[in-house]
Design a protein around this nucleic acid. Structure first.
Lengths: 281, 281
DNA sequence: ATGCCTTACGTTATACGTAATTATT
DNA sequence: AATAATTACGTATAACGTAAGGCAT
């Protein structure tokens, strides 16, 4: 049987058109390549080149062989990529989430439960997350809605409820509850990296001017500006109630989400220890 | 990059389950195989085996890698087969036929028309012929029925009609025409290597005892025995009418065939010169 | 004990580089 | 002359075999 290095050499020749050029690209001497191709021909029992005294080019067999060589090399590269990805997925847990809150809570739990694994996490669009789970890129994703799909399990993770965070001087600060449209058109402060929440605000409050801020700047501005902003029950529980702010529940359905935890039950990762930590309702 | 011999070794281990067994199958020493697999793991940067002190078996990575290795090797074998077939098809014409008669007539014509090519021919089952044509193993095949298939052309080649060849003393020797069932149950002489005709006789005359004979012996026996046998118009035209025999046409549809010539019009062989020699109806 | 895997070490096979040769532009 | 391919010959890399050691059944 021929060897892969010979197929690589064949492909180098296919691209260069001369043995000397291909040899240079391969960091190989010209005679070595010449002999290697002769061996390949002998191995295949087929001539691959038209040879004149100081000229060499593919014949039809050679062109065909090069095309197959390309496919074989591609398959080998695919093999390397997939086996390595598979190996990684066995020793790491990659968490994808549609929103920031789960990323505050889940990675510490996972690190605790799976101390011998690397825990990584990132925020992405819902559809990217779902496809990534299908492809075994993620081992665990959090979506703001349930998904029924063969091979994928879906359990409730938790809830998050959006509030307006208003300065006491705001005309609506005395409200018991509000709809998002009630503040549409005003200028609001917004954390950046809000995940899917950003889609909700854009959709329900299209006329609002959002001033996006980094986390630290956001907290400072909330403290010292009179601009309305958002908060959630999870944020309030985590960071406490900021001074000089009134938190008013938002009634829109989109502002009150249930997160779902999606994973492949037949994946190699045993996520049961983590799943047991979830609420059972 | 790893090499193909390592994938072969991986597959041998996959089948044997032990390094020593695989090494023996590969005609290789056990330590050599052990190191080779270590190199493969290092190359892939992934562990493929669970190792205990004197036990080794695949881990999940290994099983996956073996599956990909199988696919790669398969693709390489496919490459070899196709390149060799392509090479052959450029310098030879391989004719496959369902019956002997076309093999008497066609090869001389091809040799005449294509003096610089090697003409080979063989007789095979209909389905083998058709698959071989699809795979570019054959450049030209003869079947006893037409085939409509994309990429394959089909033109009428000729006809052949089966006769009973009876000794004058046979009770049915005065018949004008017969059906195959009329002689079912008797003992008959048969040439061997009849191709698809053998299927016809077995199917239509299941109770007949056929004494298969080599060509030479067959002709002798026809001359000197009183056993009925078969002949065809092509045979009669080729060999003349044997003495002391009466030839009676057989009326069954299966006994009167039209041969069709199948080939790939886009193949590299220019078979037009041959096709022009065929009848135009 | 016997079987199986690994490590160590010396050997061999084979792919490689250098040099020489020939032919083409 | 310069470029390109092949052949010849010596070299070096790397896979191999043998030997030795450890562990399990």
């Amino acid at each position: 049987m021929f060897e892969l290095y010979q197929l690589e050499q064949l492909l180098a020749f296919a691209e260069c058109g001369t043995l000397s050029g291909a040899a240079e690209r391969l960091h190989l001497s010209q005679p070595a390549l010449s002999r290697s191709m002769q061996r390949l021909e002998a191995e295949l029992q087929v001539s691959l080149f038209d040879r004149q005294k100081n000229k060499i080019k593919f014949n039809e067999n050679g062109r065909m062989a090069a095309e197959y060589a390309r496919q074989v090399m591609e398959k080998c590269q695919d093999m390397i990529g997939r086996v390595q990805a598979f190996d990684r997925s066995q020793r790491t847990i990659l968490l994808g989430s549609c929103a920031p809150a789960p990323l505050w809570e889940i990675p510490p739990v996972l690190s605790d439960l799976y101390p011998d694994r690397t825990i990584s996490s990132e925020m992405r669009e819902n559809d990217v997350l779902l496809q990534g789970l299908r492809d075994n890129f993620y081992q665990l994703i959090i979506l703001p809605y349930p998904v029924e799909e063969p091979g994928i399990s879906c359990v409730k993770y938790g809830e998050e409820h959006l509030y307006f965070s208003l300065p006491p001087a705001h005309p609506l600060s005395g409200s018991k509850e509000l709809y998002m449209k009630d503040l549409n058109g005003e200028t609001m402060l917004l954390r950046n990296r809000l995940g899917f929440w950003r889609n909700v605000t854009d959709q329900k409050m299209p006329d609002t001017r959002f001033l996006e801020q980094e986390d630290v700047a956001f907290e400072e501005l909330v403290k010292f500006s009179a601009l309305p902003s958002f908060t959630t029950d999870v944020v309030l529980h985590r960071e406490g109630n900021p001074v000089n702010r009134v938190n008013i529940p938002i009634l829109d359905d989109e502002a009150n989400v249930t997160y779902y935890c999606l994973y492949k039950p037949h994946g190699l990762n045993d996520l049961n220890a983590f799943l047991k930590t979830l609420p059972t309702d």
